[in-house]
Simulated assay, not measured.
Amino acid sequence: MTLVRPELIVFDLDGTLVDSAPDLAYSLDTLLAELGRAPAGVERVRGWIGNGVAMLVKRGLTFEMWPEGEPEGFAEALPRFMAIYADNLCERSKLYPGVLEGIRALKAEGYKLACLTNKHSDFTEPLLEKLGVAQELDYIGCGNQFEKHKPHPEPLLKTAERFGVRPEHCLMVGDSENDVEAARAAGYAIVCLPYGYRRCADAQDLKADALIDSIADLPGLLVKQAA
């Protein structure tokens, strides 16, 4: 897909704007310790992020990527995890280098900007506010606001509709297989970053329309593509 000037740019959150794995891992490991279980550790948790809090807790309870049904103790563990994480949203999480610089440059150039995440709004909005990004965005869409979650295209399609923009005039910026799958299904262009929480070893394997080292590089990429 050719990257023409998009009418809307949609960013993923975890692994794209914010390295949230340290706080998610801390919260999950605190829960597991309370249950008398071994910790998952931050590196394992990085590979578990992207399918919402409920799935993260299921993975922590089973150490399986795609656990079937509800593990024993899940109903009690989920609200406890959410309480722990609510107290640790931004203790260790940080913006990736170039995020604020890139978003502000795009905003100054008149782009409409949104963030779409499977994370609950109770966590997403406070996190983005604390990191100074919320006020730079035109819309923040969270997992509890949609019936389907990424990689299903519904959040992307409904966000394009919200802005009155055709999907083929939208760009997704992400870091993982989920983001690429969602973008392709919705008809968005997709740009990926080499960091984040993908499962494949090499970002080239994501087969995005373009790779950039930092969101600060996105304005220049869009200018180059439009030339």
Rank of each mutant, 00 (worst) to 15 (best):
L106R: 01
L221P: 04
E129K: 15
R59L: 06
I9N: 00
E181Q: 11
A54N: 08
V165M: 08
I215S: 08
A77I: 03
L56P: 01
A25E: 01
A182I: 11
A38F: 09
E154C: 13
V180R: 03
V191Y: 02
G15D: 05
M172Y: 06
E125P: 08
L171G: 00
Q145C: 14
N144K: 06
E64H: 12
C115W: 01
G69Y: 11
L89F: 03
R184E: 07
D87R: 15
C142E: 03
G174C: 11
A75F: 13
G132L: 12
V165C: 09
T62S: 13
A75P: 09
G60L: 04
E154H: 10
F63A: 15
D202F: 13
D213H: 08
P6L: 12
D213P: 11
F163E: 01
E181Y: 01
V10T: 13
Q135I: 08
L127P: 01
E70Y: 11
N51C: 03
P126H: 13
I212Y: 04
A201T: 08
G132P: 13
G60T: 08
V4Y: 08
D29I: 06
V165L: 08
T117L: 04
L28N: 01
E168P: 09
K107C: 09
F163H: 06
A216D: 07
P219E: 05
G52M: 05
E91V: 15
F163I: 12
P155M: 12
E43K: 02
H169Y: 05
D12Y: 10
N51S: 12
I212E: 02
L218S: 04
V10P: 14
E7V: 01
D87K: 14
G143R: 00
E91D: 09
A183N: 05
N118F: 07
V4E: 13
L206S: 04
A227M: 14
E147I: 14
A38G: 12
E7T: 03
W48S: 00
D209P: 02
A75L: 11
L221G: 04
P155S: 12
P151V: 14
W66C: 13
F163V: 11
K119I: 10
G47I: 00
E68M: 14
K94S: 14
V133Q: 01
A203N: 02
C170S: 11
Y26S: 02
E64N: 09
P153Q: 09
E168T: 13
L193C: 02
E129L: 13
K150A: 12
T117I: 05
I215Y: 04
K158N: 06
D14K: 03
V165S: 07
N88F: 05
E136T: 07
G73N: 05
N178M: 07
